[in-house]
Design a protein around this nucleic acid. Sequence first.
DNA 1: ACGTTACAGTGAATGGCATGCACAGTCAAG
DNA 2: CTTGACTGTGCATGCCATTCACTGTAACGT
Lengths: 184, 184
Amino acid sequence: MADAAVAIADETGLEALSLARVAAQLKMTTTALYRYVDDKATLIQLMVDRAVGDPPAITGDDWRARCRRWVEHLAQRYAQHPWLSEVTPTGMPTQPRAYAWIDALVAALDDAPEVDALRLAMLLDSLVRIYATLERTLRADPPAPWLGEAVVERFPRLGGAEQQDVTDAGAELRYAVDAVLRGL
Amino acid sequence: MADAAVAIADETGLEALSLARVAAQLKMTTTALYRYVDDKATLIQLMVDRAVGDPPAITGDDWRARCRRWVEHLAQRYAQHPWLSEVTPTGMPTQPRAYAWIDALVAALDDAPEVDALRLAMLLDSLVRIYATLERTLRADPPAPWLGEAVVERFPRLGGAEQQDVTDAGAELRYAVDAVLRGL
DNA sequence: ACGTTACAGTGAATGGCATGCACAGTCAAG
DNA sequence: CTTGACTGTGCATGCCATTCACTGTAACGT
């Protein structure tokens, strides 16, 4: 059931995911799904758990590099399932896989000095989410020049950034992560 | 109309906001609202613009301190309207106020060396969003200890962080912003 | 003063959605 | 053979966004 739902979300996004469509995919009635799941929300939780999957094993000399690898892996999962960034986060993680990812980051921070792994995990995860959201919306919207003549006229200070490129969400993510890692 | 919608969202959250309720508040029929707004989505855009409001004037010696002030102000707006963090961002900003905030940050970065203001604005805004979301969900959920015995048993490395306090979203935000500003 | 036109709001209707409840088949254990 | 758990169905409810055809009303040009 979770797999069917993930397949639908992969194709049509989270907005278009309804229990009716999941049921159709499984050749069941909509209401039959309530035998297995209390709620649409819990189904989505299951989907997230499944789509994010298990954390990778990370090796490398530099702990910052290991952090970046961790981020890359997570970002890759988000890229495979763009709807992940549409899921509204609901507080602290309760799914087992989430703990596994945090654990993996803690392992990667083995020899890092004075780094608060839990906080960092939350921060990095959030950054991945954000730039995944950015990527998704960039894909959906026309890549509008976003700074028109009129705007620059009203806010002259923005003039310099006019032709700036914000089309590569991956690059933005790396920028943000690098800034954080340098600043720790 | 936007004000009525903001009032409802302030009280009951974004989930509970329906055009029917807005109409009731205004003593109109639901369908009458479509005279003024194409879509529920565009109504929400208007609401965001109104709720975020105009950026403050920021003064101070240190550009990092000015950045922090900018973040504090923005976070304050999110605190006043918690539903803001529930709004799914839709690509680059199109509302005039958004430009004004970016412009304000650019101004604050006047004498900062080699800082990409646009990128930084996006990053800081994202951070504010994230920790506003955290605060909202902390308020909604029971502040569960989130790391049970069973979890620590399966992931021994997480043991140290067991009793860690993640209840103060404001502190987390400052931690993240400080890390970023140091790392630029 | 009269007709026209833009505007503001209404009412009914459509199609989708999550979800609840009472029922029917099916299959295994006593 | 019977009972009971399990799996699935059908029907129904209430909420939602959105569309369309319609009515009143207020301003404006002649």
